[in-house]
Simulated assay, not measured.
Amino acid sequence: MPDTGGLPSSQTLARKLDLLMDTMVAEGGEPYSYLDIAEAMDRAGTPLSRARWQYMRAGTGPQPRDRGLLANLARFFQVDGSYLLEENCELPDRITSQLELLRTMRAAKVRSFASRQLADLSPDTLRRISEMIEAETGPSRP
């Protein structure tokens, strides 16, 4: 196996980039477009073609080796460079907290939907359904 210098595989990088893109949306922003990212990379001195971005996002291209580009992408997404430069780097705290928030929001959305759809059921049946949901997703948080 060739020496990759500890850089993430194409598939790992794609997962990490997806998390970063999703986090931006979770933080209340609009998703970044390719043009937003390409312009930032041009200003940082590491141009990024549309084809290369698509390969990186899909995880189908060759393993990324441009450390400068990966470091600039990390700066753009406001995470430590090691997140994109290392295969086995832990999730940044900001990403972890946003994922937890998304999980909680999705669970609350399910509870809200279920309560509207199941309004005609008996209180005992609703309580049992609620207990089953909490057993699967954990207790609701204020």
Rank of each mutant, 00 (worst) to 15 (best):
residue 41 M to R: 01
residue 41 M to V: 05
residue 40 A to Y: 01
residue 19 L to T: 00
residue 29 G to D: 08
residue 39 E to D: 14
residue 37 I to E: 00
residue 72 N to H: 07
residue 27 E to R: 14
residue 38 A to T: 02
residue 44 A to Q: 03
residue 27 E to P: 06
residue 22 D to T: 15
residue 76 F to C: 13
residue 75 R to P: 01
residue 42 D to E: 13
residue 44 A to D: 07
residue 40 A to W: 00
residue 80 D to T: 07
residue 19 L to W: 05
residue 53 W to Q: 11
residue 32 Y to I: 00
residue 33 S to N: 04
residue 62 P to A: 07
residue 62 P to S: 06
residue 45 G to Y: 04
residue 38 A to W: 01
residue 70 L to F: 10
residue 32 Y to C: 02
residue 49 S to E: 09
residue 63 Q to L: 12
residue 26 A to Y: 07
residue 33 S to I: 04
residue 73 L to P: 01
residue 27 E to F: 13
residue 38 A to L: 04
residue 37 I to V: 13
residue 20 L to Y: 01
residue 52 R to T: 09
residue 74 A to T: 02
residue 60 T to R: 11
residue 61 G to C: 09
residue 58 A to M: 12
residue 24 M to V: 14
residue 66 D to T: 10
residue 46 T to Q: 12
residue 79 V to F: 09
residue 40 A to I: 06
residue 44 A to R: 02
residue 51 A to S: 13
residue 56 M to K: 04
residue 65 R to H: 07
residue 69 L to V: 05
residue 48 L to W: 03
residue 41 M to P: 00
residue 45 G to D: 00
residue 34 Y to F: 14
residue 63 Q to R: 15
residue 25 V to T: 08
residue 78 Q to F: 01
residue 67 R to L: 11
residue 42 D to W: 01
residue 57 R to K: 14
residue 54 Q to R: 04
residue 57 R to I: 00
residue 79 V to G: 03
residue 24 M to K: 15
residue 52 R to Y: 11
residue 55 Y to G: 09
residue 62 P to G: 07
residue 71 A to T: 10
residue 25 V to M: 05
residue 79 V to E: 08
residue 61 G to F: 10
residue 77 F to M: 09
residue 50 R to W: 05
residue 51 A to I: 12
residue 61 G to L: 12
residue 47 P to K: 12
residue 76 F to R: 06
residue 46 T to Y: 10
residue 79 V to W: 02
residue 33 S to G: 08
residue 45 G to L: 09
residue 80 D to E: 14
residue 24 M to I: 13
residue 69 L to F: 03
residue 30 E to A: 11
residue 39 E to K: 15
residue 39 E to F: 07
residue 33 S to C: 02
residue 23 T to D: 06
residue 50 R to T: 03
residue 25 V to H: 04
residue 58 A to Q: 14
residue 75 R to Y: 03
residue 39 E to V: 05
residue 23 T to Y: 00
residue 57 R to C: 11
residue 67 R to A: 14
residue 20 L to C: 02
residue 22 D to H: 10
residue 70 L to D: 03
residue 47 P to D: 06
residue 34 Y to A: 11
residue 37 I to P: 00
residue 76 F to W: 08
residue 39 E to G: 05
residue 68 G to Q: 15
residue 45 G to M: 02
residue 74 A to P: 02
residue 27 E to H: 15
residue 28 G to H: 07
residue 37 I to S: 01
residue 48 L to N: 08
residue 55 Y to C: 09
residue 32 Y to F: 02
residue 38 A to N: 05
residue 75 R to G: 03
residue 56 M to I: 12
residue 23 T to S: 09
residue 68 G to I: 10
residue 31 P to A: 15
residue 21 M to I: 03
residue 55 Y to L: 15
residue 43 R to T: 02
residue 38 A to H: 03
residue 21 M to Y: 00
residue 53 W to D: 06
residue 30 E to D: 14
residue 55 Y to K: 06
residue 77 F to N: 04
residue 35 L to R: 15
residue 64 P to I: 15
residue 67 R to D: 07
residue 58 A to G: 11
residue 61 G to S: 09
residue 53 W to P: 04
residue 76 F to L: 15
residue 78 Q to K: 11
residue 51 A to R: 11
residue 35 L to W: 12
residue 53 W to N: 03
residue 55 Y to D: 15
residue 71 A to M: 11
residue 63 Q to P: 12
residue 57 R to P: 08
residue 51 A to V: 12
residue 22 D to Y: 09
